[in-house]
């Protein structure tokens, strides 16, 4: 704890009783940790300990009802060798990748509009945009079932207009349905960070660009877009990470071709009853997401540097 000693300022009025209290008064680091302690406690109890158990369990193997607790790489070996795991992983990245791109592309204009073209009642606009998220996630998934269903809103509408003869079957119970539902479900998490970073952009930069002869398109690509990239990046992460592990949406609106790695993990902890394998798959998924995230971060940072 060299930090503590270095940062503890000598005080002339240190007449207070010694002990914990005086240490707190003296040491900035200790004060910092004290302020952090509720969050740290939650992190350790709620995240660190379960994650350690998960990692330990992933090296065990299942033995009937019980676990064989001798350490082995068997689960990881299986995950490498059996093609289903990699295929599910690839499919999860594919589905959540498309979801992320679609969500960010659809939400950027909304965030842009509120940041630049709404001058009164901005708060109200933001609340209206997040209003659908005040209802339960399950309700929203089921409402998509109503919209996309065989006798749903879209199909009966198109049938009524005479545009199609038979209901479109690819709408529900397909990867399309999973992507649409996920994109809608996570829209608020894309709008808010992008709105914040668009809102922060200094308007005088845009005026300056206009004075120097840039048209609206060049202004957007040279100033607005690069300056809003932090918001886009956080939106991308906020959507990509949770949707990769999602399993409720594919279970409810997906068909035979849409289960994702989350469904497989859930099965290992449920019907298949192979917790160590489920733990290994969770760890693999975490590592993959971290790797993809780092690559993405690296690429965007490089491209940003080359722009600036």
């Amino acid at each position: 704890m060299a930090d503590v000693q270095m940062s503890s300022a000598p005080s002339a009025r240190s007449q207070r009783p010694s002990g914990l209290r005086s240490m707190l008064y003296k040491s900035e680091t200790a004060r910092g940790y004290l302020l952090l302690s509720p969050a740290l406690l939650v992190m350790v109890v709620g995240m660190l300990i379960p994650f350690t158990i998960l990692i330990a369990m992933s090296f065990w193997t299942r033995d009937g009802f019980d676990f064989d607790t001798t350490m082995s790489m068997a689960n990881y070996q299986t995950a490498m060798d059996v093609p289903i795991y990699n295929a599910f992983l690839a499919r999860s990245f594919w589905i959540s990748g498309i979801t992320t791109v679609a969500t960010v592309l659809l939400c950027y204009p909304m965030a842009y509009y509120v940041a630049f073209h709404v001058h009164r009642n901005k708060m109200l606009w933001i609340i209206l945009m997040t209003l659908p998220f005040w209802t339960s996630y399950l309700l929203r998934v089921f409402s998509w079932k109503v919209i996309l269903g065989y006798e749903g809103v879209i199909n009966s509408g198109l049938l009524g207009l005479g545009l199609i003869d038979a209901p479109l079957e690819f709408l529900l119970y397909s990867q399309t349905a999973v992507i649409i539902t996920l994109a809608h479900a996570w829209a608020a998490f894309a709008i808010l960070p992008m709105y914040v970073s668009l809102e922060k952009i200094d308007r005088s930069l845009l005026e300056a660009a206009a004075d120097l002869g840039d048209g609206p398109a060049r202004r957007f690509f040279r100033i607005t877009l690069p300056l809003s990239i932090p918001g886009v990046i956080s939106a991308t992460f906020l959507i990509f990470i949770p949707t990769t592990g999602d399993y409720i949406t594919p279970a409810l609106v997906g068909g035979p071709n849409s289960p994702m790695i989350g469904n497989l993990i859930q099965l290992q902890f449920g019907a298949v009853n192979n917790w160590p394998m489920g733990a290994a798959l969770s760890v693999i998924l975490t590592l993959w997401i971290a790797a993809v995230g780092l690559v993405f971060l690296f690429v965007t940072r490089k491209s940003q540097e080359s722009v600036v």
């Binding site: 289903i84 295929a87 599910f88 035979p256 071709n257 497989l264 099965l267 298949v272 192979n274």
Partner: peptide, 12 residues
């Protein structure tokens, strides 16, 4: 059985 059936459902 569950593992095999899940694989088949997934298309393997």
């Amino acid at each position: 059985m569950n593992e095999t059936f899940e694989m088949i459902k997934a298309g393997f």
